[in-house]
Design a protein around this nucleic acid. Structure first.
Length: 896
RNA sequence: GGGCGAUUAGCUCAGCUGGUUAGAGCACUUGCCUUACAAGCAAGGGGUCGUAGGUUCGAGUCCUACAUCGCCCACCA
């Protein structure tokens, strides 16, 4: 007797099987004769904790990896983590602040970086432990970090190459400056959000003579950096003033009035203050007119010496004061409420201050072109396709990438400067771009690189690129690159996915992968992003604890439809839990009759001895369904419709295998109430189907399937489910005929049950039934006559008659199924009115249906234009329904 | 301002290149602790597929507007 309990308890087995797989080395991928299948795990931040987004994406990646592995591929799922510059630095800064009351400056750069390393060593692998709980079958022996020595080298090589190719430059430009993190950011790291603000109308008096020009601004404090006032060249109000000057209020400066057709005459006051040091558009206008650039802010967004009386104040305090002073001095004309877009750091949420700063940039256009072409040509495909449009849009409008960051935690920029006698950087002399210090005394650039400047190399730097002297590495790169599919969310389409494609093509000369599967994002029940601040997150580990990893994986997969966001709430995992429980108990049906050893493991290998055509109806039907399901799964997975694949297995397992096959296969209770037994032949069939279903389910629900795998057959050492050969559909065991006959049987059984339920006949009460078949259906008649046992088991029909032209017994209910019908004599229980109503309702429904078909067929255009197959199908339907109606009417009139 | 997505049963969602009488899970009703499973079984009820047009023999599916919600992008101060 197998050792199973009624309720499946996942906590019992999951860790055990994970350890077993790892010990077996089952996750490892090595260069072999097999075709490779490679997935690069998007490296989580070292600060990361497993969240539902990871759980979803890992489930998808693991399912694909496990399936390919079973299908005979050398499946590599490469894990790793990202040093995540700002994020990690922030975490450690917060920690030392909280624990020691210190800032990173108290530590100094070197000591602080050491502190971060300490943190990484202590906490950096937590997420990988969490991923193990989920069942991730990635090759941990290949785990990489974007700060591994070899990886650092790759990043520096890439910098040097891009510089030498003329694609990296340094310069003073207006950049997105975050005053909280005190670093430059790329455009992608900035979000524009709508915010209620004000539009202040301010008067700038003419320097020469009477009068003034009115301007409008949303950021009055920037006026301290104004170096011109612009009007439209065709604006008749101001034309005559161009070339003159205005007095800049609150300062002793005067600024020129210039004409530029960027100015919209009808917006605001029709004139524009120009602050080239703090506004992107103004900077361009400034360049056109060769204006002076004044930066009025310090890195922390307090005003600097150009702020005059406001120097040292925070920019927003200064704004209030300036407005108050303008008003007091009569320069403020009016204030209007105004909604404008404000740039926010995606990391710190601080309002970004555009300011001029010396930074490093990558010229993107030359990189973008091939990347565009790779997708346009179809070499790389997006699933779902629509994401290709987002990708095009971004690449077609690509802007240069600000890659330098004023942080301490990150890849140092491989640029060196000469120093003067005081040890200060000698700005007079050229810098040198080199990985190692070119000359003693030279100092390295203080800045570090954007995190994504290292992660864009992930698909090949993780394999050891660019080390060319090492044969192992070369062979690995040859074999495992390019990869096959990238699974990711759309949130990092620009940050990472697009840049990886650029990097792959530019540095490696190859696309990084063929397919990109973009999953939806996990949202809360109300469709909001899950976040710490909202406290609406669902912790995958708690869910695993509560429902089991397989249940979590099942539910996430089944909910993951083609890129749609998932509104998740914990009760969704009940679906998976219930299914796991169903699987567990289904095994028990036949497992309890197997010969087992003391540990409950099978000692006998039950194999079917009969050929397919010797099997009985339900068996042929079940194998047919199984083989159809295998085909369906393959088809769905090839299009990354994992929800559909898993849904198909679920329906077959529960709706076919459990509800019909097992119900018919399990032993019947003996006459005297004693438990029956199951023949070896029956056990063999159940085992065969169940085992195959376990394999189909394994990629999605690895733990329970592995556990039961060992319980259905004696296995040799190491003969794990996860390493078993993926089932092949056996097309010779697809029997459409059996499917059709069994389908009719299902209809008749359901009809009988329905009648019993309708008339309050207890399901357990034995009844008689008479099946009436059309005269020509000899084959059906034989099949159903042999199926009396099925009717008994499923509907408690103890007396079955099957024939054609059979007389309808007195006082019986009738169920019509196509051209067949079944009579259920219910002497004394049947309510004639009820029965009439029941039949009438059915007749009405069929008549409506028939009418719509007849309508179609009367339509000449339909008959002439629709494909012949469609028309034939309608004709067939018409004939079927007509026959069915005849019977229904006959049955009705029978009732008198 | 531009683009994308969503709108299908009470709820959450599938529904692919148009073609059986639109499906699932949950919830609901009725009956069952039928010795695999009450995390279950059986039988049911419930949908004019957001609105209005159009294309087509045929539309949940394609087209055009519109509405509502959500997301992305964008230099009108």
């Amino acid at each position: 007797m197998a050792d199973t309990t009624k309720r499946y308890d996942p906590s019992d087995i999951e860790d055990r099987w994970y350890a077993y797989w790892e010990d077996l080395g089952a996750f490892r991928a090595e260069r072999s004769g097999k075709p490779p299948h490679v997935i690069m795990m998007p490296p989580p931040n070292v600060t990361g904790r497993l969240h539902m987004g990871h759980a979803l994406q890992d489930t998808v990646q693991d399912a694909l990896t496990r399936m390919r592995r079973m299908q005979g591929y050398e499946a590599l799922w490469m894990p790793g983590k990202d040093h995540a510059g700002i994020a990690t630095q922030n975490v450690v800064e917060r920690k030392i602040k909280a624990e020691e009351g210190k800032t990173r400056h108290d530590y100094g750069r070197e000591a602080f970086v050491d502190k971060v390393w300490e943190w990484v060593d202590e906490y950096g692998d937590i997420i990988f432990q969490q991923k193990r709980k989920l069942g991730d079958s990635c090759d941990w022996s290949r785990e990489r970090f974007t700060f591994d020595d070899a990886y650092v080298r790759a990043v520096q090589d890439v910098f040097v190459k891009l510089y030498n190719d003329g694609l990296i430059y340094r310069g003073h430009y207006l950049v997105n400056w975050c005053p909280v993190d005190m670093t430059a950011l790329s455009d992608e790291e900035v979000n524009n959000i709508e915010k209620e603000g004000h539009l202040w109308y301010i008067r700038y008096p003419l320097a020469e003579g009477e009068g003034h020009i009115e301007i409008a601004t949303t950021r009055p404090e920037t006026m301290l950096g104004d170096t011109a006032l612009a009007v439209h060249p065709e604006d008749e109000r101001y034309q005559h003033l161009v070339g003159q000057h205005v007095q800049l209020p609150l300062t002793d400066r005067t600024i020129p009035i210039i004409a530029d057709d960027y100015v919209k005459m009808d917006f605001g006051a029709g004139a524009l203050k120009i602050t080239p040091g703090h506004d992107k558009n103004d900077a361009e206008i400034g360049k056109r007119h060769d204006l002076e650039v004044i930066g009025i802010m310090n890195p922390d967004a307090t005003l600097n010496e150009y702020g005059g009386a406001y120097a040292g104040m925070d920019r927003f305090d200064a704004r209030d004061r300036i407005v108050a002073d303008l008003e007091a001095q009569g320069y403020l004309i009016k204030v209007e409420p105004y909604t404008n877009t404000v740039p926010i750091s995606s990391r710190s949420k601080a309002v970004i201050e555009p300011l001029i700063s010396r930074q490093w940039f990558v010229k993107m256009e030359p990189l973008a072109k091939p990347a565009l072409e790779a997708v346009r040509s179809g070499e790389i495909k997006f699933y779902p396709e629509r994401w290709a449009n987002e990708y095009y849009r971004w690449l077609e409008n690509i802007r240069d990438w600000t890659i330098s960051r004023q942080l301490w935690w990150g890849h140092r920029i491989p640029v060196w400067y000469y120093t003067d006698e005081n040890g200060e950087i000698d700005e007079e002399r050229d810098f040198v771009v080199a990985i190692d210090q070119p000359e003693p005394g030279m100092v390295q650039d203080e800045d570090v690189l954007d995190t994504w400047f290292s992660s864009w190399l992930w698909p090949f730097a993780t394999l050891g690129w660019p080390e060319e002297s090492d044969e192992e590495i070369n062979a690995d790169l040859d074999y495992f690159h390019p990869g096959h599919v990238l699974v990711s969310g759309y949130d990092i389409l620009f940050f990472w996915i697009a840049r990886m494609i650029m990097a792959g093509l530019y540095f490696k000369g190859e696309i990084p992968y063929r397919d990109i599967f973009i999953t939806g994002m996990i949202k809360d029940k109300q469709g909001r992003w899950m976040s710490k601040s909202l406290g609406n997150g669902i912790d995958p580990l708690e869910m695993i604890e509560q429902y089991g990893a397989d249940a979590v994986r099942f539910s996430l997969t089944i909910l993951c439809a083609q890129g749609q966001d998932i509104k998740l709430d914990p009760t969704k995992f009940e679906m998976g839990r219930n299914f796991a429980n169903k699987i567990w108990n289904a095994f028990n049906v036949f497992g309890q009759f197997m010969e087992t050893d003391a540990e409950g493991l099978p000692t006998k290998d039950y194999r079917r001895t009969r050929a397919f055509d010797e099997l009985e109806l339900v068996e042929r039907w079940m194998l047919t369904r199984l083989n159809q399901t295998i085909l369906q799964v393959e088809e769905s997975v090839s299009r990354y419709r994992l929800n559909e694949a898993l849904g198909a297995i679920y329906a077959t397992f529960w709706g076919d295998f459990c509800d019909w096959f097992l119900e018919l296969s399990k032993p019947q209770r003996g006459e005297d109430g004693e438990l029956g037994t199951m023949s070896d032949e029956k056990i063999a069939l159940a085992t065969e189907v169940f085992e195959t279903l376990l394999q189909l389910l394994h990629p999605f629900m690895p733990f329970i399937t592995e556990d039961l795998w060992w319980k259905v057959r004696p296995r040799a050492e190491g003969e794990a489910c996860m390493l078993s050969a993926w089932p092949k559909a056996n097309e010779t065991e697809i029997d459409e005929d059996a499917a059709q006959v069994f389908g009719l049987l299902q209809e008749l059984v359901s009809g009988i049950r329905s009648v019993k339920s309708k008339y309050g006949v207890s399901p357990g009460k034995a009844i008689r039934a008479v099946v009436n078949l059309p005269a020509e259906a000899e084959r059906l008649k034989d099949a159903l006559q042999q199926s009396d046992r099925y009717f008994e088991k499923l509907a408690k029909v103890t007396d079955l008659t099957v024939g054609s032209g059979v007389e309808k017994p007195k006082a019986s209910a009738a169920v019509v199924a196509g051209t067949s019908e079944v009579f259920i004599p219910l002497e004394g229980m049947i309510d004639l009115n009820e029965e009439r109503a029941r039949l009438s309702k059915e007749i009405e429904q069929k008549e409506r249906f028939l009418k719509s078909i007849a309508g179609k067929l009367r339509n000449e255009k339909f008959v002439s234009r629709a494909p012949a197959a469609v028309v034939d199908r309608e004709r067939q339907k018409q004939a079927d329904i007509t026959a069915e109606l005849d019977r229904l009417r006959a049955n009705l009139s029978d009732l008198g």
